[in-house]
């Protein structure tokens, strides 16, 4: 807790819609509590703009607990932002103003990646991620068809690693950070999550081929192992999931059930 407040200069990307050109607008804001979250600071900006009769800044957000994956803003060039700290990455909603200092100039932009077109201002369309999951990011088990939960023991180590990969929130920071706009970390997280569990085995080869095929078709770029994605991932999805994806992809080429 602190009673400190900040006066800030915000440089915010304003773009009326997908097809219109955008530009940076500058706003001054004062008296921001350092206990506020970054999004609460933007709320205050929007209250101020509304009272002045100006259009508020559009941005996506929902749970504000760092779990739904809906928020995502590039702050001073870093997806989700870190302020002046070197702390581990977080979601935009979990970035707090105590990470900034009085007088800071903060540049606020949307995710920039061809597969994520801007809808308005800071909000982008990430439906491409849903399409990747729809291309096999699941286990085909109809409701009611499941065996007893203890029918398959799963080693704790594998279950824990599967969990680590399964914590992906689909925010898209990995794509925004990648110079190639690759969605490989996102795709690899699902491949790894399901590939490590016995339930994911029957469709493992088919899954990786279909998901990668869809990933490429949607215009995401290739992976060059730069690691920018993992460096901004708010859930610390490990970069080695991409190695897992590559291994599964190569293995699938030698398996009959990988064809479709």
């Amino acid at each position: 807790m602190s009673d400190n407040t900040l006066n800030l200069t915000l440089r915010v990307w304003r773009q009326p819609n997908r097809n219109a050109p955008g530009k940076i607008e500058e706003y001054k804001i004062s008296g921001i509590s350092t206990d506020s979250s970054f999004l609460e600071m933007l709320d205050e900006l929007n209250e101020q703009l509304t009272v002045e009769g100006k259009e508020p800044v559009a941005f996506d957000h929902d749970c504000r607990e760092g779990i739904c994956g809906m928020c995502g803003i590039v702050i001073n060039g870093v997806p989700h932002g870190r302020g002046n700290s070197l702390d581990t990455p977080t979601t935009t909603c979990q970035l707090h103003m105590r990470k900034f200092k009085n007088g800071d100039v903060i540049t606020i932009e949307p995710w920039r990646a061809a597969p994520f077109p801007v809808i308005k201002d800071l909000a982008v369309d990430r439906s491409a991620f849903d399409k990747i999951i729809q291309a096999g990011g699941y286990v085909s088990v109809p409701t009611g068809a499941a065996p007893e939960a203890h029918a398959n023991a799963v080693s704790k180590l594998k279950a824990d690693r599967a969990f680590d990969a399964a914590t992906c929130i689909g925010c898209g920071a990995c794509v925004a950070a990648c110079p190639n706009s690759s969605g490989m970390l996102f795709t690899a997280a699902k491949i790894t999550h399901l590939g490590l569990l016995p339930q994911g085995q029957p469709e493992r080869a088919l899954r990786v081929k279909r998901m990668i095929g869809k990933h490429d078709e949607l215009g995401f770029g290739g992976c060059q192992n730069l690691g920018e994605c993992a460096a901004v991932c708010p859930k610390s999805i490990p970069l080695d999931t991409i190695s897992q994806l590559n291994r599964d992809l190569i293995a699938s080429l030698f398996k009959g059930d990988g064809k479709h």
Partner: peptide, 11 residues
């Protein structure tokens, strides 16, 4: 059902 879907419950 959830285990069969691949939900990684604590083990």
């Amino acid at each position: 059902q959830c285990v069969a879907q691949g939900v990684p419950f604590a083990r």
